[in-house]
Structures are given as C-alpha cells and as structure tokens.
Amino acid sequence: MGSRQITEKSLSMIRSLPRISLGNIRDNPGSKITQKRGRGQHRGDKHGAGNKGSGQRQNYMRLGYETGNNPFYLRVPSEPYYRGHHHRRQYPPLSLLELQSLIDKDRLDVTKPIDIASIIKSGLYNMFPDQKQFGIHLTDEGLDIFAAKINIEVQWASEQVIAAIEKNGGVITTAYYDPHSLFLLKNPKKFFETGQAIPRRMIPPPDVIEYYTNPKTRGYLADPEKISHERLRLAQKYGYELPELENDVSYNMLIERKDPRQIFFGLEPGWVINLKDKCILKPRDEELLRFYSS
C-alpha cells in the first residue's frame, strides 16, 4: 500500500496544506459554464440562430405540421393496432434471471411466499401503478439457470415460465390487482401509517376474467383441481418430472394463497394495522364483517 494508496495519499497531502475553510474552497475548474453572448468572430453575427424565419424567432412549428400541406400523418391511412395503446394495461417485465439474482443475494426470502410487495421491497424492481402499470410480467430470460423452489404470485406469465418454476418444485399463480391495491402493495408502510382499514381487492375487469380463471395460466380464480391437472399436463409437454407437492418439506408455504379479495398475505380486508403500538384492529361489527367478507 504505502504512498500509492489513493485515499491515504490525498489525506496526507491535505495535512500539509492550510486549514480548509469557507474562504479557500472552490469547485473544479471548468465545472460551471456561464452562458455568454459571443461577439464578432466568437459566434457573433446571428448567434447560431440562422437567418430569418422560425429558427431565428424561436417559433418552431408543431411536430408534423407542413405549413398548410395535408400532413404526412393524416395523408396515410392509420395503423389501427395502436389504437388506445395509452389506455391498455401494462405489465413491466421481471426476468427469471433477475428473480434468481434477487434470491441469490438474499433480497427475496424463498421460505415465504413471494408477491409484488416482497419484490418491490427488494429495492431493485419498481412499478408505477399511476402509469397504467398493473403488475409484474415474469419473462423467460434466464429460464435455463433458474433453480429456486418458490411460491410466487405474478400478474402475467408465459407457459415456459410456468414450466420453469414448476420444474423446480415451485408454485406460480397469476393474480389481478386493481391500481389502488397496487399502491398499497408498493408501499405498505406508508399505507399502514395512514391508519386506514385495509380495503378489499377488486375483481378483474371483463377482458381479463378469462385469463385469471384459466387453469393453463394458473389464474387465481381457476379451479384448483384443474390447475393440478394442468401442472401434470405441462410437465408431460416439456418432459420433466413434476415434483410432488404433498411430500415436500415446505408444503405449508407452497400451498399458501391469497383470498381473491385479499391484498396482503395473512392480513384480511377491514383490519387496521397500528405500527406504533404493534397491534391490529379487527372489526367486530356485523355490518363491517359482511361488507369485507368475500
């Protein structure tokens, strides 16, 4: 190490210099450029704005406008498959490789069921429900290296991804969350601090009911009997031996599911979480119990 140690070197240099004070510090030279209007040969004349017209007057036409011509974007027929794209649901991707690296670095606890809350808690994945994002799309990158037995709940998954997780003895569920529930899942602590009762999860909109009741996509509204049948079918299709869930040591963890009306694992709608006194307020009123029952 010795004198070539970077930090040591700079600290020992500063030892022999005058005391650092408000009067003798400065920014790096050249870090701040003040804008000046050049004169003459130094970018004078038109100051880079060109000669006459919209360039000089900083009056740019709107994008696509062709000074009165029938513009290009109206001249050609429209492309209908992008109609309403800004209203469609988005599912920001999370690859199996990323999921595996989260597990490897202990950001995700595989001994507990994984859902959006635990994935966002890891700090390496983020989602914005206010930007029409409706949850996680588990993608197939890193499909071959994936080797973790997990109980995971995502919002969208392909057949190969389902096969990759079930091959390792894991369980996958696809579940729908409305944006309000996603806000709660994104920052549960912030919600608990507001002192509100945990709301119910909404049921999926009509166009995705089919996806979430389909046992092939492991929908959370599908019949469990049919799902176990589909698990077997998928194992035969991709040619792997399906590990038996019943004999598994972590069977209790693997069969843990949320109620279709439930947002957080283990916490029922209607409860109020008091983080300060570490207590839970459970409604006793008949009216509330009936309202929150699914």
Binding site: F265, G266, V272, D277, K278, C279, I280, P283, D285
Partner: peptide, 17 residues
Amino acid sequence: YEFDVVKNPPEWAYVER
C-alpha cells in the same frame, strides 16, 4: 364501529415482512 384491538397478534409476522 366496534373493533377488537389485538395486542401482539400472531399475524404480526405478516406485517413485519
């Protein structure tokens, strides 16, 4: 509305996670 206030509930593990 009437509420049960449960101190140190068994469900607190779910909150902590």
